[in-house]
Simulated scan of single mutants.
Amino acid sequence: MLQLKRMKLRSAERRTSILTYWTVRYLILISVGLVAAALLTFWWIRQEATSNRLQTAGLLAQEIADQVNDSGVLAVPPNLGPLIEDRKRFFNLTNDMCVIVTGKDGGLLYSSPSMDEQRMRQELNEDLTDARSPEFKAASAPVSSGGKLLGKVFVLQSKKSLSYIPREEVIFFSVLLLALIGLSWLTIYLLSRKLARPIQRVAAAASEISLGRYDVTLNAEAKERGIHELLGSFREMAGRLHQLEHSRSLMLAGVSMSLRRR
């Protein structure tokens, strides 16, 4: 018997309250769900940033192509370097961007930063259509006049810079995610506590009845129909048990009196 009581006590110690049980599990579920959604959103933002920056690089390549087309003649204007630097600041482009202008035969005419023909061949593929390294992407625009190809303009950027997200945006996104997790947990905690209170009172009242104290009162009222019915049924059960105990006491007292008379 003593061993059985010890086992029951150990089992009771291992059990957690309703409030802790549900809030912890809901917190885990919400955290996993929000983190998964945040990672998916973060990936989508990086993809959109890469696409938008490639489009911006394409627009810059087209603008440079228009600048070097001097009435059907490919000529690099002296203000091309300042123009590129101005566009970098305006479009918030990174400094690792590389601009290359080639002639119709693929020869190097201009580069920023400055490089020689051999270095240009290392940066571009054999067909002069894209970047040679898989870590870089190239946006290109043809320089043409009257349907005649005069040359090409390439704007190269690393994939890392294309998908770069400013630190301030990452911090803001992280704070927003933590705020959502905290708000969700607080909402679940308040709801779970509201649902757990009447159940805890019923459990406490049941413990009192198990000890032979039938005069228990449940003052808790609930707007939820299920919990309200539970409280009402328990009150009715406690009242009937009280009546049965009172009847049993009267019967025992009557039997005892009859035995004494005999």
Rank of each mutant, 00 (worst) to 15 (best):
L93V: 09
N125R: 07
K104Q: 07
L150P: 09
K104D: 15
L108G: 01
I100V: 14
P142G: 10
I100Y: 06
L93Y: 00
A139K: 00
K160N: 09
D86L: 07
D116S: 03
A138D: 02
V101W: 02
R87D: 07
E85H: 10
G106K: 08
S133Y: 03
F136V: 01
V143M: 04
G107D: 13
L124F: 03
L149T: 15
R121D: 10
S133W: 01
A138E: 00
K159W: 02
S111C: 14
T94A: 04
E135D: 12
A141P: 03
D116A: 08
S163Q: 11
S145E: 11
D116H: 13
L128R: 06
A131Q: 01
Q118V: 15
F90G: 15
Y164L: 14
K88G: 03
G107R: 11
N95G: 12
Y164G: 11
F173M: 10
R89P: 07
N95M: 07
D105M: 11
E168Q: 13
L128F: 05
S145I: 06
L150D: 06
V143Q: 01
M120A: 11
Q157D: 01
F91K: 04
P142I: 15
R121S: 06
D86T: 15
E117Q: 15
L162D: 03
F172C: 06
C98F: 02
E169A: 08
R167L: 14
K148A: 13
L156Y: 00
E168H: 04
